[in-house]
């Protein structure tokens, strides 16, 4: 049974690292707000995309392109142009979230494979089947909110391939349905392809310790012995009824390495590694561990265990050096 490993490519060196270390697919974005990692210095222009696609295809690795923000009327031509460019470049599939863009892509390039992005917020098979019936999507990436039993029920009730997040930064909210970032900064993943954008972040050393602010809103204060990670809005410490704590989520990463046999059993088609904004070294190490783990599980799922060595390596790459099974493990909720 196939269980593809889908790895992040924020730039050409990261793409090569993923391909060289066993990714079945890499996913990338163009250098503008058409994708949900629209960070400065990241992503591909047409020339680097061409090089990356050639590098991957020469080594039998597929290339997916994320166009998973929502086109806004005045600038919707930018998203359509991105679809045209992707088709011209020979991308293996587009990852889309917006209904209008799906129609454009499916009508203009009927042979181009479409995936439903996690930003499309489809958490149930009725929604997924709608996208299949109208736009012939071939795969859906599920938001990180369902338990494994719920995922299994989705798989049983749709012919669309299901892709799950396996490792990396953890969104605690339903992707595509969180605008906390634009509430504080004016820019959200849906509209601008960014969450808690770097340009709105301010670090300030104060007599009471280091402070992180997002567009002026205090997200956290750190004492001298605390590690300060990137100040994503939902991972700050706040006060609710006189208690100060990580009210939404700790700075932690998702790691589902131990669930690979379950994913094989229930018929998951692909595992996605988060982290287009991370370094080529991260991509190399995570890809290598996941390639080895998936191969081991495919060979002998009954005796598969997530090796300590793998977990240690992934642990070092995790946000706050912590990881969780997230919503796949029901008590997390």
């Amino acid at each position: 049974m196939s269980l593809e490993l889908v790895c992040p490519a924020g730039n050409l060196p990261a793409l090569k690292a993923a391909v060289d270390n066993g990714a079945d697919c890499v996913y990338m974005g163009f250098r503008n707000s058409t994708n949900a990692r629209a960070f400065a210095g990241l992503n591909f222009d047409n020339e680097t995309a061409k090089q990356g696609i050639r590098y991957a295809h020469d080594r039998s690795c597929k290339v997916l392109l994320a166009l998973n923000t929502y086109p806004q009327t005045a600038e919707s031509h930018i998203w359509k142009q991105a679809v045209d460019d992707a088709a011209e470049l020979g991308i293996d599939a587009l990852i889309l979230a917006d209904l209008g863009l799906m129609r454009y892509a499916s009508r203009t390039y009927p042979d181009l494979r479409l995936h439903l992005s996690v930003q499309g917020s489809a958490t149930n098979y009725e929604a997924i089947n709608f996208y299949y019936e109208h736009f012939d999507i071939q795969r859906a990436v599920l938001p990180r909110v369902l338990s494994l039993a719920q995922v299994e029920n989705v798989v049983k009730n749709t012919s669309v391939e299901i892709e799950l997040f396996g490792f990396g930064g953890l969104c605690v909210m339903v992707e595509g349905r969180c605008i906390l970032s634009s509430y504080a900064t004016g820019e959200s993943p849906n509209t601008a392809g960014v969450c808690s954008p770097a340009k709105a972040v301010r670090w300030q050393q104060t007599p009471n310790g280091l402070e992180s602010r997002l567009n002026g809103v205090l997200l956290d204060k750190y004492s001298a012995n605390e590690n300060a990670g990137y100040p994503t809005l939902c991972k700050g410490r706040f006060e609710v009824e006189d208690e100060i704590y990580y009210a939404l989520e700790e700075p932690t990463s998702l790691n589902t390495l131990e669930l690979i046999p379950d994913m094989l059993r229930i018929g998951i088609s692909a595992i996605k590694i988060e982290g287009r904004q991370r370094s080529p070294v991260y991509v190399e190490q995570v890809t290598r561990v996941w390639r080895a783990a998936i191969d081991a599980a495919k060979q002998d799922a009954a005796h598969y265990v997530a090796k300590e060595d793998w977990m240690t390596q992934l642990g070092k790459l995790s946000e706050g050096q912590q990881h969780t099974l997230g919503a796949y493990y029901r008590p997390w909720k």
Binding site: V145, L146, V172, M173, V174, R177, C178, I179, L180, Y183, V240, E241, E243, A247, L248, E249, A327, P331, W332, K333
Partner: peptide, 17 residues
């Protein structure tokens, strides 16, 4: 502003959802 599968009210009260 946002939906989650996690219940933040239960979390504040240290209860499972």
């Amino acid at each position: 502003l946002a939906f989650s599968s996690r219940c933040f009210t239960a979390r504040r009260h240290n209860l499972p959802k």
